[in-house]
Amino acid sequence: MKQESPPRKSIDSWLGKAIPRGQVSEVFLPVSESYSGISLSIPLQIHRSDVDGPTVFVTAALHGDELNGTGAVRELILDKEFRLKKGSLILVPILNLLAFDRHSRYMPDRRDLNRCFPGSPNGSLASRVADTIFTEIVGRCDFGIDLHTASIRRTNYPNVRADMSDPRVAALAKHFGTEVIVDGAGIDGSLRKEACRQGCPTIVLEGGEVWKVEPAIVETAVRGVKNVLAHLDMIDFAKEIPEQQLVVKRTQWVRADGGGFLQFHVRPGQVVEINQPLATNTDLLGHQNRIMEAPFDGVIIGMTTIPAVGPGQPVFHIGKLPKDTDPDELRESRQSEENLEQRTVEDLASNVMVVDHEESRYPES
């Protein structure tokens, strides 16, 4: 449930430092201390226009090993031609510095920071960091974009996660411009859900793998951020929206029925139809054990990158196509050399070996 919005903190100054209009400023936000008592601070870049307007945050690496978003934020930071015509933008390349320094998803106290918001100044380490982030960053903003990747040993086809029941959130999600939008309010304690509860409409981009900066994912993220800023009339930018956008209300993990070594037949982002073979599970000598099939017409929004599986392990995350979506029309909408969605499918597929099911040959057990 959306709560009454608290008063926004001013963007005019931060930690006693003036943030002038019409300039780009840097702030180092203390979030914790080392064992030696040295202050640990996350770097922020703040863009301000001379003209009043919304304040937007773009955060990356809330999980410290999810670096695609960091690559995207750095592209914006390094773009010398990037200018706001109104409002303010807070860019945060690494939100979870403590996890980033350990090449880890989690905080040193083994907590998931993205389950600790809005946090508490007197709580655990993760809760205290969450409180600082929520107070000092979210508390100054009108809108938010949080950039994520799949968890370890998985990859995600770019998709926005958003509570489409909130009109302001839905507008952000659609204008961001991914082909797939997964509808849902999110998990209690997550930055996205708690920011929305506090009256700061926020969306999440999920795309790619951990520990990587993948060109197609970075391009998707940068394009999406600029699309949103153009939607809010904060920059001049010709918005780029896919020919088709799917609002997915149901997703399902297809899990392995038994152990074995998989031969994948589909790739991240591929459009599939009900009962289509997704992978063949074999023993180590190549004897076919089982064939995994699509439970409905859908799109592969996530999948494992490790072909060795055990019983019950998740392999394919499928978003069910809306009833009015024709799989063939969706495939045809991507058929262009300049189509970012198709290029993303091809780029992500370079991390897994995919063989067409009709061309595969396995001896029977």
Rank of each mutant, 00 (worst) to 15 (best):
A18T: 15
C200F: 00
A61W: 04
G71Y: 04
H231C: 09
G177C: 04
S360Q: 13
G119S: 08
L278K: 06
G189E: 07
T220E: 12
P363G: 05
V228A: 08
D146C: 09
R110Q: 12
D257W: 11
K80N: 14
R361C: 12
Q276H: 10
P118E: 07
R21L: 14
R267Y: 13
H265P: 10
H317N: 10
P311Q: 11
G186E: 04
I133K: 04
I38Q: 13
V27E: 01
P268T: 05
L205Y: 06
S365H: 12
T178C: 15
I42S: 03
T344Q: 05
K86P: 01
D50I: 11
A195G: 05
L278A: 08
Y362C: 12
M1G: 15
A173D: 06
K17L: 14
G177I: 03
V129Q: 03
Q288H: 11
A150G: 06
A130H: 02
T178G: 03
Y35A: 13
L278V: 08
V248R: 02
G184K: 07
L29Q: 00
L98K: 01
N68D: 09
H63M: 02
D297S: 11
K80G: 10
V182H: 07
L76K: 08
E214T: 15
R255H: 13
A126I: 02
V213D: 06
V225C: 07
R48K: 15
N114E: 09
Q270K: 12
V129A: 01
S350A: 12
L125N: 05
G286W: 09
S36F: 12
V225E: 05
K9A: 01
G87P: 00
G224I: 07
F237G: 03
Q313L: 10
S49Q: 08
E136L: 04
D257V: 14
S350Y: 03
T149N: 05
A99L: 04
H287T: 09
E337G: 10
S124W: 09
P307Y: 04
L229S: 04
A294C: 05
F143M: 00
D163K: 08
S336D: 15
G177N: 01
I217F: 08
L67E: 05
I217L: 11
